[in-house]
Design a protein around this nucleic acid. Structure first.
Lengths: 114, 114
DNA sequence: TATCATGCCTTGTGTCGCAAGGTATCTGTC
DNA sequence: GACAGATACCTTGCGACACAAGGCATGATA
């Protein structure tokens, strides 16, 4: 798990927006989706994830709706707004160019399509 | 330039160690090396870089020596200690695996050697 | 009945990037 | 001689945020 707090910090926003855009919709599910989609390498702590969702909602990038699960539990479902969708593309591009720049300095492989 | 503070935060340590390991040795030079080696994409502000160097020195990963430049100005030259060299390999590996995990989630190209 | 998984949340602490400021020297140029 | 610009180091104050650690409530399972 991403024990170093500085790492997740740089990518949490695009990750969360991407996962919501891809179908994950409520906090608890998103937290597990982060782990699954990263092959168990990334962990979004609850104390990190929930405030992040609230920030994104406050900025108008997410919209939340309360629904009941089939078992009757309350869930807070999130969807991307139009701004959220646009913002996802921005931060994704930002992250890609950033990580390529870092890889260049570190002498790491170039990113290429397989 | 890396206007988003959360980005540089995740990679400053490996970057600085790598540049010093690669020959850059004093603060002012390192700050320019960050820009040059990243093709102008990354910027390490002085208020970011100098405290970072002090932290690394305090942790025993860097050792500093004052020297005079050919023009007579004082420069604080840094070199990696043994611990610093080992730590560089650790954080480099950490960053590579992290960035690959993020790219996986974002559906970005796999990292491959060109 | 108790425990676990689900599902939401908050507060306190510490770290750290950045803006903005400071000091000093050397090399020009006017 | 004066002044600007590059070089070279540094610090303080502010704000943002990850994480640990806690809390609360419900449904399923044993």
């Amino acid at each position: 798990m991403a024990q170093n707090p500085d790492l997740i910090r740089s990518a949490l926003e695009p990750i969360v927006l991407e996962l919501i855009s891809g179908g994950a919709s409520y906090g608890y599910e998103i937290s597990r989706a982060v782990q699954q989609s990263s092959g168990g390498q990334l962990l979004a702590q609850e104390g990190t994830l929930y405030p992040a969702l609230h920030r994104l909602e406050k900025r108008g990038l997410l919209k939340a709706v309360w629904k009941k699960s089939p078992e009757g539990r309350d869930r807070k479902h999130y969807v991307l707004t139009g701004d959220g969708r646009r913002h996802l593309e921005e931060v994704r591009a930002e992250w890609v160019s950033f990580s390529q720049a870092v890889n260049k300095i570190l002498g790491v492989a170039h990113a290429q399509f397989a």
